[in-house]
Amino acid sequence: MNIKEYISSGILEQYLLGNLTSQEEKQVEQMMSKHPEIRQEMFSLSDTLEKMAMQSAIEPPQGLKDSILKEIDPKHIEHRSVPKSGKKGQRDLILPALIASLLGLCIVGFIAYSCFRGKTRMNEQIESQNTQIQTLSSENQDLNTRLESATQNLNIMTGGEYNQVIMRGLPISPQSFAQVFWNESTSDVYLSPSNLPTPESGKQYQLWAIVDGAPVSMGVFDLPETDFALIKMNSIANAATFAITLEPQGGVESPTLEAMYVAGNVNS
């Protein structure tokens, strides 16, 4: 049988319509793979059958699709309310797609908002921590300065290079007490006004050194706010006695002896 006869015998139509036994079908498939003309005719007939099927289509009852989809996926949810239509598939997808995109939008928005709020909150935290750090660092600096001066003072008081001169309270203020630390080799003088009464306003204490029987002003001073503070006074190379008087603000040239609070001799 030649190819033309084979094609016109109608066996291809039988094949397509499902009227052949599986053995006959295999023979047709063999012929198809051997002869491009037969294959060509088969595809052409398929097109016609497809068009005929599309033209004689009948809309299946609602529920059939769901029942099929449920068979392949038990989790499938029914969509019975969707009306029948040629574009049913597309319309089926619009609502879920819309919901999904809205949901997506909400999530993105929420994340963005959270990030924004988080960032704002974090910025606030950073700012307050920066302030705290600044406060702590200035406190630290302050403490360092005080520690430095305290160490320095301790060195002066205990180092051995300074001569300690104790000035005791005189009759007008027997409770008063002060010390001078004097380095005889460098002439440096430090004063510790340990216990002097707060002066009345317009008055200032003045330190004196008695050199060869004559008073030399070592400068005026205010009482320090902290305990154990040392006040650097004027330098002096020689002195037998140190004394403190209460004088008008800014000091005077010669001491007022009636207002002498403390005095002490240098130990030789």
Binding site: A53, S56, A57, I58, G89
Partner: peptide, 22 residues
């Protein structure tokens, strides 16, 4: 892909159902 089967049904379900029904 389950969505593919669903779309296949939308496109050809009526054509095939028409055959079966007749």
């Amino acid at each position: 892909d389950k969505l593919a089967l669903s779309q296949l049904y939308d496109q050809y379900g009526a054509a095939l159902y028409g055959q079966a029904y007749r």
